[in-house]
């Protein structure tokens, strides 16, 4: 019940206005999801032993307590805080950490609700429209090479920041997903992954896709292969976009029940639920777009 958007600039060393582009694209399809808006952004200055963590901590006293718990937990894992910030209902921290990221992630979840963990990934999501979220988190000036965005129409569960998208692949660094649709074999797939020791922190099918793909990547699959098998393994209706620190990709179910439109040229690839989002990037221009075929997938790598 939503709209999705993704963009990647192909040029070498491209440091484009990713924040502004995503805000525009999401603003264009806000009618598909007026309740909440989210962004998956990738910072350029990633270091091997530095991780960005963002938690949902709420406000006031609750936030204070959550932040204390997070600090304790970080200390327990010998993670050294390099930067920290309490913004909106979130707490963002940059830490130096060497160790098993999966174990670290699961432990952090016990301190407070984790939104994302990654060397370069930072997920920002909150209730309201694209401009509302930008107002709180100042995303307009964010530059980078790629990112994803999502607008949500909450139909079944509540309008809360933790139920907003994008979703992070719990336990894996830097993998994010935005998804429009419904995975009908959710529990079957989830139990399979849980048997292998993965933990899920929501009942959202988007988290499942993210963990599924991240697991494939961790096993040495390319993103392209992971997307290919996802089309066979996932039942239901879906159009989703996935991003890692160097790539974005899409997959679309065989029934094409959820829309997706693509624009690609030498400089960029932009994908959205509707062309109106793409036109927001290029107002007044007739674009050469196309709709990816049902049951297809593709990935794009940024030039480093």
């Amino acid at each position: 019940m939503c709209g999705i958007a993704g963009i990647l600039y192909k040029r070498k060393g491209a440091s484009a206005d990713i924040g502004k582009s995503l805000i525009d694209m999401l603003d264009g399809c806000q009618h598909r999801g007026p309740d909440s808006t989210g962004f998956a952004l990738y910072h350029e200055d990633a270091k091997d032993d530095e991780f960005r963590l963002r938690f949902l901590v709420g406000e006031g006293e609750a936030a204070k307590q959550a932040i204390d718990r997070i600090r304790d937990k970080l200390a327990e894992f010998q993670a050294v805080i390099l930067e920290e910030e309490n913004v909106g209902s979130t707490y963002r921290v940059l830490v130096r950490f060497r160790g098993d990221i999966q174990r670290f992630s699961y432990a952090m979840e016990h301190a407070a609700k984790v939104i994302s963990i990654g060397r370069s990934l930072d997920i920002i999501k909150d209730i309201g429209g694209a401009h509302d979220v930008d107002g709180t988190y100042t995303l307009n000036s964010f530059t980078g090479s790629h990112g994803l965005g999502h607008v949500r129409l909450a139909t079944e569960s509540d309008v809360t920041p933790d139920r907003s998208h994008p979703f992070w692949a719990t336990g894996f660094s830097d993998v994010a997903i935005v998804h429009n649709g419904q995975i009908t074999n959710y529990w079957k797939m989830r139990r399979r992954l849980e048997k292998r020791g993965f933990e899920f922190v929501t009942d959202n099918d988007s988290e499942l896709i993210a963990v599924y793909l991240a697991d494939k990547l961790a096993q040495g699959s390319t993103l392209e292969d992971a997307l290919k098998t996802s089309i066979d393994d996932m039942d239901g209706t879906f159009s989703f976009l996935v991003s890692t620190k160097d790539e974005i990709g899409y997959a679309k179910d065989r029934l094409a029940a959820k829309p997706m439109v693509m624009l690609e040229d030498e400089d960029l690839v932009a994908i959205a639920s509707e062309e109106v989002s793409l036109n927001k990037l290029f107002p007044g221009r007739a674009l050469k777009t196309y709709e990816p075929a049902p049951g297809t997938y593709r990935t794009w790598q940024r030039s480093i």
């Binding site: 939503c2 709209g3 009618h31 598909r32 999801g33 129409l153 429009n180 959820k258």
Partner: peptide, 9 residues
């Protein structure tokens, strides 16, 4: 109408 988002439109 394949979902609530289409139904809005």
């Amino acid at each position: 109408v394949l979902g609530a988002d289409d139904l809005v439109i």
